[in-house]
């Protein structure tokens, strides 16, 4: 018997001794444990947040009072600024998600389908390069490019055009966020397109459908689960983003995460911060749940769902 076989047999015998056959059914659960633990910790954290959010800050001691109260939620409802920021956050997230998906889909499609090796290589490199540059560095990069004295404005003035205020307003934030989210979206859409055999498109064409019709009736429906998945990821990441609005918005167009940050660390009111966090988590979950409900249970390609 070859040595490797004997080695493997020994390992198998050891495993059998340590993990008897009647426990086999639990093996899957055992592998699931670490992930379940991590999620569990998150849920516990959320529980603490909920608990915090139900106590008012005692301004005399700067500690949370012991008795339960809904004061923090009342503050959120009574101060219009929070409503404005939340609305801006949701609107921004919807915009960013929409624009990102629109840009990511053709990119992913060409990346998967191109027959020209150098095109694929170029697209792959451009896709992964941004991952090596952190979000904050990238935001500062944009400051350099788009700033009053930046690259774009020197070009404009060079052409005799007036310099523009490109930074510190909503479009600049959307722009930065789209640029940040694009690689994530592409990475999530690529497998969805890879999973569509090219012959599906050829079949559609030979059956009489020019490319736009093929796209609408075959490519889009078949890539739909991937698109929804990418959309949800981009949406939630944007909803909770902090750095881009902070840096590119210059404090004028904060997103909700900034408001939460400020409550915790600027005005030192953990109760209010926790309440705002709960609002964001709840709203985000509701929107994602609604998307999945509308897009159908087959969206994530989960078994049993009709695709």
């Amino acid at each position: 018997m070859p040595l490797t076989w004997r080695f493997l047999d020994t390992i198998e015998a050891l495993v059998a001794a340590l993990w008897p056959a009647r426990w086999r059914g639990a093996t899957g659960w055992a592998f699931l444990m670490p992930a379940l633990l991590l999620v569990g910790v998150l849920v516990i954290g959320l529980g603490y947040m909920l608990e915090y959010s139900l106590h008012e800050l005692n301004l005399a001691t700067y500690r949370l009072r012991d008795e339960y109260a809904l004061t923090n939620y009342a503050t959120f409802l009574n101060r219009p600024v929070y409503g404005t920021v939340l609305w801006r956050t949701v609107l921004g997230s919807v915009l960013v998600t929409g624009i990102t998906l629109l840009l990511a889909f053709p990119y992913a499609y060409v990346l998967v389908r191109t027959r020209v090796p150098w095109v694929r290589k170029a697209l792959l490199v451009t896709l992964f390069l941004p991952f090596f540059i952190g979000q904050v560095v990238r935001a500062y990069g944009w400051l350099i490019v788009l700033g009053r004295e930046g690259l774009v404005n020197s070009l404009l003035t060079g052409l005799g055009l007036p310099a523009q205020d490109l930074l510190f307003h909503f479009p600049a934030v959307i722009f930065g966020l789209v640029q940040y989210m694009l690689p994530f979206a592409i990475l999530l859409i690529v497998p969805a397109i890879t999973a569509i055999p090219e012959d599906m498109e050829r079949a559609s064409e030979s059956l009489g459908a020019p490319w736009p019709a093929t796209f609408r009736h075959v490519v889009l429906p078949m890539a739909w689960p991937g698109l929804i998945g990418a959309g949800v990821v981009v949406f939630t990441l944007t909803m909770t983003d902090f750095a881009m609005p902070e840096i590119l918005g210059g404090g004028t167009t904060d997103f909700f995460a900034s408001a939460i940050y400020d409550s915790f660390f600027q005005i030192s009111n953990p109760g209010l911060g926790a309440a705002l966090s709960m609002v964001l988590v709840t709203l985000g979950s509701l929107i994602v749940a609604a998307v999945f409900a509308l897009a159908g249970p087959g969206t994530l390609g989960i078994r049993g769902a009709r695709t």
Binding site: P197, D199, M200, R202, A203, S204, E205, S206, L207, G208, A209, P210, H217, V218, P221, M222, T307
Partner: peptide, 19 residues
Amino acid sequence: PPYRRSIGMVFQKLALFPH
């Protein structure tokens, strides 16, 4: 183009639309 040719084709892997 293929969509203007009057040709029916059955593919090696059939390529039926799953949806």
